[in-house]
Each structure stands twice: as C-alpha cells, then as structure tokens.
Simulated scan of single mutants.
Amino acid sequence: MFYFDPLYFLFALPPLLLGLWAQFRVKSAFNKYSQVTLANRISGAQAARMILDRSGLGNVDVEETRGMLSDHYDPRSKKLRLSEQVYELPSIASVGVAAHEAGHALQDKKGYIPLQIRSAMVPAVSIGSNLGPIIFIVGMFIAGSFGTTLAWTGILLFAATALFALVTLPVEFDASKRAKEILVSQGIVSRQELKGVNAVLDAAALTYVAAAAQAIMQLLYFITIMNRRN
C-alpha cells in the first residue's frame, strides 16, 4: 500500500531528525536558563506586563496557563498566556519567552502583515491539516478521474498547512528580534544576560524551521505519489 512506500522515509526522516534535534535544544536551553535568576528578579509575567504597558498595550491581559511551554498570544481575545514556569519564575528563560510572546502583541498592534496573514489562515489550516491527508488517501484508493481529483483536492487542502508553516517563520523570527531589542532597551536584562535569552529563543526558532520542513516534505511526498500514479 502506498503509505508503506519506502520513499516516504526519504521525505519524512530528515525533518523528523531535525525536529527531534530542535526539541532537544529547546528543552536543554530552557532547563539551563530556567536555573539562572535575573539580577533584578523580574518574573516572566512582570516582564511581559512591563513591555506591554510601556508599549501602550495596557488592554492586553497577561494570564497563567497550564502546560509546559504552552505560551502564546491570542490576537482575538487580546490575551497573553504564559505557562506556569514562565509566568512565575524570575529566570532568563522565563523572561525571554514572555518577551517573545509580548512581541506578538506588538506585531498585532502595528498591523504586522505576516501575523495578519497567519491569523486569517487558521480556519483553513485546521481543516487542511486534518482532512487533507484523509481525502488524499481516500482518493488514492478510488480508481479513475474521480479518485485523482479527490486526491489532488486533499493535496491542495494540505498545502495550506505547508503555507501556514512558511508564513509562521517570519512571524516568529520577528517576535524574537523585537523581544531581544526591548529587553535590553527597557533594562529588563543586561547585555550579559541577553546571551541566555538568545540561546533560548534561537533554539525555539529552530522548532518552527523543523515544522515548516516537515510540512513541505510531506506535501512533496503527496505530489510525488500522485505523479507516480499518473
């Protein structure tokens, strides 16, 4: 059956290994710098609040949420949600992650176009990522032009996932850049402490690169299978 095709591993293995390496780096960097307390003992929540208030974003709430590194900014509800460790600890890692999420709020305020595109794509991506592969598989098992059309429909739906992963890259890179600049300019971290922030955020950026690579390679695999069928 096509989904046991050894060719799949040629497409899937490299991004899988990259993803595992990225996850290792993130956990390693976060665990290391979670143990390093900031000189001014500002927690992640306090750092986020300071950045938001000084940027005219007093309307954005900072909330604690559960889950390891579940930190995110919700542009719809204007809420910045930080995981327990990030919210509470006065560590270099916590402040770096909190500032990164605050960077997304700044993007939202300034109408950063890649963020707007990504937000607009969320509904299509939720459908494409779940239904795209299923429709593709069903189409592959149906003979004739109808099956071919169905399989290509699944590919097009999944393509939204790959495009979303690509659009995510500039959004995340820009948020990290804003975070690093703000942390120093507002005196939240020193130049020496910024090295730890760089280590954490650069490792996190690699996970988005791995996710994009995985989505693109899976899309290319689907297209290759269709070409072989034709």
Rank of each mutant, 00 (worst) to 15 (best):
Y3N: 14
V189I: 13
A120W: 09
L10H: 04
L38V: 11
Y33E: 09
I92E: 00
G187N: 07
G96K: 04
V138M: 13
L80E: 01
A204T: 11
A105E: 02
Q192R: 12
A211R: 04
P114D: 10
R49T: 06
R25Q: 08
V36A: 01
P90H: 13
K180Q: 08
N227I: 14
V95H: 00
P75Q: 10
N31G: 09
I135L: 09
F146H: 14
Y112P: 13
F11I: 03
I113S: 15
E101F: 00
L13F: 09
V184P: 05
T168W: 10
F2I: 12
F9C: 08
F146P: 10
A143T: 01
W152I: 09
A211T: 07
Q23V: 09
A204Y: 06
D174A: 10
E88I: 07
G103P: 01
Q85P: 02
K32R: 13
K110D: 15
A179R: 08
Q192P: 08
L206E: 03
H104N: 13
H72W: 09
W152R: 12
A29D: 04
L169D: 04
A99G: 14
H104D: 11
P14C: 06
Y87L: 08
K109L: 12
I182E: 06
I117P: 07
V86R: 00
V209K: 00
A93P: 12
E84L: 10
L115N: 08
A102Y: 09
A199V: 01
N230T: 14
V36M: 03
I134F: 05
L156P: 01
L201E: 11
G44Q: 04
A47C: 06
L16V: 02
K32V: 01
L80Y: 03
M50A: 08
Y73L: 01
Y208V: 04
V95I: 00
S185G: 00
G103T: 03
M217Q: 10
Y208S: 05
Q116T: 11
S43P: 06
E64V: 11
A159F: 12
R25P: 11
T153G: 11
A48K: 05
D53M: 06
L163F: 12
A165W: 01
E88T: 11
E64T: 08
A175E: 00
T148E: 14
A124N: 01
